[in-house]
């Protein structure tokens, strides 16, 4: 495959089966099988699913005349979107400032700086909500900065409606479930809408990371945050996945299928396995695609892969692992 620039090598990522983690035996009759399929989004240019949204959001802002060479882009991000935006910004001639919670992995910070982004840290307590709040304040103070705002930018969901969704359906026309992590909700909204328009009865399942108390501690229930992109009617189920389950599944994916993924992938896999178990119990066929949002490289320093699960869980307590 040949591309004119790194940007155009975006997407068309592999969808790979998980023969060892799928719950039914390979020799079960076809109408009783539950099969899991991993969409390897770590194969994108900067190594995460966020390259799709970053490319679409910048292209869209250029078309609308919001961005011209030399402009400064501002974005609240826990890392991956920032890294993706930094790559696109570099190739298109923009400056990037990221507002990032201070409790994200060291690798994310290093990578952002390597790609040329400037980082403004937001307090750990409050997690991504706090980064969003700080970014909104900065945007108001600097009207010349362009905030793409992934949580409310329709181009984020559209990237998945126009690319991820069609790729998955082409590779897996028999799909019954789509499972992805819930953050900005862009992946689930875009792929979810695309599949629901074409696959009657398809299940769209959100896997939401459940963090330690630090992240929720100061959150007032009256001042929570729901991304503007989120439309509850696109989903059919939403699971809260704690860090121990996410870590356990991340390790199983490596040990049994050889896929080295980040911790948020374990979160999605946990929900996918739950959906598979339900289908097997009900005696129904299932083809379940889930998103591997990124590889494990950026999380080596967190301790997620060291020692026992309990040790790993303690190590990542208070960190934003998704």
């Amino acid at each position: 495959m040949r591309f004119d620039s790194l940007l155009y090598s975006l997407g068309h990522t592999p969808l790979v089966g998980l023969p060892h983690l799928s719950p039914s035996a390979p020799d079960a009759p076809p109408d009783r099988q539950a099969r899991l399929w991993a969409k390897l989004e770590d194969r994108n240019p900067t190594g995460s699913v966020k390259d799709r949204a970053a490319f679409y959001m910048i292209e869209s802002a250029e078309k609308e005349g919001l961005l011209s060479p030399g402009c400064t882009i501002l974005e609240p991000t826990s890392g991956n979107t920032g890294i993706s935006l930094a790559m696109v910004a570099k190739l298109r001639g923009y400056q990037l400032i990221c507002v990032m919670p201070e409790n994200t992995s060291a690798e994310r910070r290093q990578l952002l700086e390597m790609w040329g982004a400037r980082i403004i840290f937001s307090p750990a307590a409050g997690g991504s909500n706090e980064a969003v709040r700080v970014a909104k304040e900065l945007a108001a103070e600097h009207p010349d900065w362009v905030m793409l705002y992934q949580y409310g930018n329709e181009a984020n969901a559209r990237a998945h409606y126009e690319t991820t969704g069609p790729e998955i359906l082409e590779d897996l026309p028999t799909i019954t479930h789509f499972v992805a992590g819930l953050g900005t909700t862009g992946t689930l909204m875009g792929v979810g809408r695309y599949l629901r328009e074409r696959v009657p009865g398809v299940q769209i399942v959100a896997a939401e990371p459940r963090y330690g108390e630090l992240v929720y501690g100061l959150r007032n229930v009256d001042e929570g945050f729901v991304p503007e992109l989120y439309d509850e009617s696109v989903l059919t189920a939403r699971y809260s996945v704690g860090s121990q389950d996410a870590l356990r599944r991340t390790r199983e994916l490596l040990e049994r299928e050889g896929i080295f993924a980040g911790i948020s992938t374990g979160c999605a896999l946990h929900a996918a396995l739950g959906a598979a178990a339900k289908a097997v119990k009900a005696g129904q066929r299932a083809d379940i695609a889930f998103v591997v949002a990124d590889g494990g490289w950026k999380y080596l320093s967190t301790g997620a892969y060291d020692g026992t699960l309990e040790e790993a869980e303690r190590a990542i307590e208070g960190q934003l692992w998704a």
Partner: peptide
């Protein structure tokens, strides 16, 4: 039953 405040989470 688990009660949690809504947050901006996920791989963002």
């Amino acid at each position: 039953l688990t009660v949690l405040p809504a947050v901006a989470g996920g791989a963002s």
